[in-house]
Amino acid sequence: MSTITANPVYKLELTSSPHVHSRWSTKQAMWMVVLALLPALISSVIFFGFYQLLVVSVSVASAVVTESLIKYIRKREITITDGSGIITGMLLGLILPPNFNLFFTALGSIVAIGIGKEIFGGLGYNIFNPALVGRAFLQAAFPVQMTTWIKPNMAVDSVSTATPLSAFKFDSIFADISNMFIGNIGGSLGETSAISILIGGIFLIVIGVVNWRIPVSMFLGVIIFGGLFWLLNADQYPSPVFHMLAGGFLFGAFFMATDWVTSPLTAKGMWIFGFGISLVVVMIRLFGGLPEGVMYAILFMNAFVPLINRYTRPRIFGEAK
């Protein structure tokens, strides 16, 4: 999908057939994603206050600086304009809890770019979604700060609260669905407001930057797996709608799982990938020790992508089975 130009003068594509044609160049697509993330960013400012802009800015700035620095040390061309560092920074910023420490934000961003991406050789070679690697690091490093949520009240004062998922996990309380849809709940910056994620996500699908199969298969997966338990016992297990709106599911479905580099190439592969993520998410949420599992589910399925690609590779016409 993405092409790596060996020589900027000749624009020679050095990839073996079959070539998949995309309407967008990597660079254009990246900027479209940035555009699509704006509604989520705006909703985070509305619900949690202007400080959140600072968090996202620090995240983006450290991502870009880290990427440039590593490229410089490795004596490679500095590629800020491809937007990938900016996206990783934005994505990471938006999946952090509100009022997060700026130093930790920068650290997460450095880990995301350094260990999540550049160590594998840069854009196009990373196995795991860089932003999620950064968040996983922060989650393990600062578990208390990463699970301190504030009430969304336009940042008048910060009152700590529980996310719908932790309320369900630890106290068996189900949050109000309409509040979850608007985003008036505790949670990470860009993950709370379903409506603003949907605006950005559908925009990306319509213009063709993101393949619809991954989000759709994730929704179907959560309806099947989450619905199964819900039908078994509606008092104990939350409905599929709750699963879909809670935590980072929507954000993950549209912006994380669909990352070009770390998702499967074939249509069949994308279905497997999406269903796999949903299954792991439902399992972690219902039976795991942690309230939320979207991040780990996506990282887990990222590891299977090379395998999925291998087994869903289209056969050459006439090739023996």
């Binding site: 420490n101 930790f104 260990i115 160590i119 690091f137 393990a140 490093a141 600062f142 578990p143 700060q145």
Partner: peptide, 21 residues
């Protein structure tokens, strides 16, 4: 603020990997 990840198994793998590199 101590990075708890460093005294968890993940921290061992990260540190060893970077040291090997």
């Amino acid at each position: 603020e101590p990075w708890l990840v460093m005294i968890l198994p993940a921290g061992a793998f990260l540190t060893l990997g970077l040291m090997l590199a």
